[in-house]
Design a protein around this nucleic acid. Sequence first.
DNA 1: CTTGAACCTCTACCTACTGTAGCTTGTAAG
DNA 2: CTTACAAGCTACAGTAGGTAGAGGTTCAAG
Lengths: 141, 141
Amino acid sequence: MLTIGTLAKRTGTKVQTIRYYEQIGLLPEPGRTEGGQRRYGDSDLDRLAFIRHARQLGFTLEAIRELLDLSDNPDRSCADVDRIAHRQLKEVEVRITRLDALRKELKRMLGECSRDTVADCRVLEVLRDHAACLTDHGQGV
Amino acid sequence: MLTIGTLAKRTGTKVQTIRYYEQIGLLPEPGRTEGGQRRYGDSDLDRLAFIRHARQLGFTLEAIRELLDLSDNPDRSCADVDRIAHRQLKEVEVRITRLDALRKELKRMLGECSRDTVADCRVLEVLRDHAACLTDHGQGV
DNA sequence: CTTGAACCTCTACCTACTGTAGCTTGTAAG
DNA sequence: CTTACAAGCTACAGTAGGTAGAGGTTCAAG
Ligand SMILES: [Zn+2]
Ligand SMILES: [Zn+2]
Ligand SMILES: [Zn+2]
Ligand SMILES: [Zn+2]
């Protein structure tokens, strides 16, 4: 039986985060001591490790919830699992594409600045006028 | 004189977002009609366009606040402006590096899956155990 | 003068946590 | 057995950067 602090250390999670996962139903309510403190078993450790690892790979908590549900049906086809992972891959690729456009534009405007006064700063000029941009950075980041 | 709706349309911003920027002090409080409706001038249009463009390039609102302050002192050296832009470039590069590691790992685990049952799904196996990862995806995304 | 789109304020909500205040429990040493 | 204190508990607030809705008012065209 593990205390919440031990579970936190073993999984590299903050104690509050564990309680938060319980609150949103991502971790089951654990047993309690007489005094009301949480006590965890190995299955909780596995589940939390899964969640943290999936988070590190960028999955949202909603996606993780789906993955955990699917993981409970070992006999089913893994098509849904792969679909979720594929969607995640696509999202990552989209973000990379967008960030790469930003990187290019930032590099370019920094390269063009002659490091003189604010009045002549090329960086500010570009920020003032998207027409001075070569990149098409649609919405958000 | 522009209404908030017109200003929103001209800059591709939501009306609520404009009021939000005012609330956090990023846009000055505009004049009002007798009835209390906001009316904007061209300087507001320029300032908001600047903010939105900088946001599209990934600058935080705090960075934008600094840039706007600097922009008000045309005679000063632009070193600070360039430092902010440079910091932004670095952050973008870090994020790209991290996302690229995620992309590789997601691609790899999807490539290794034999698309059979959930019990054998390689994607889930990797998620369960970071040792099965080739990538070192430290903290967060 | 009437209608209705656009405006107003205020509040709550989103993700994925993190931090704080004020109190209680568990455990090890003396 | 008592005491000290780390670690636990709940509840609430806050982060970035907005977005959505309720319920009420104003502006401008017809
Ligand atoms: Zn410059
Ligand atoms: Zn641009
Ligand atoms: Zn699979
Ligand atoms: Zn891993």
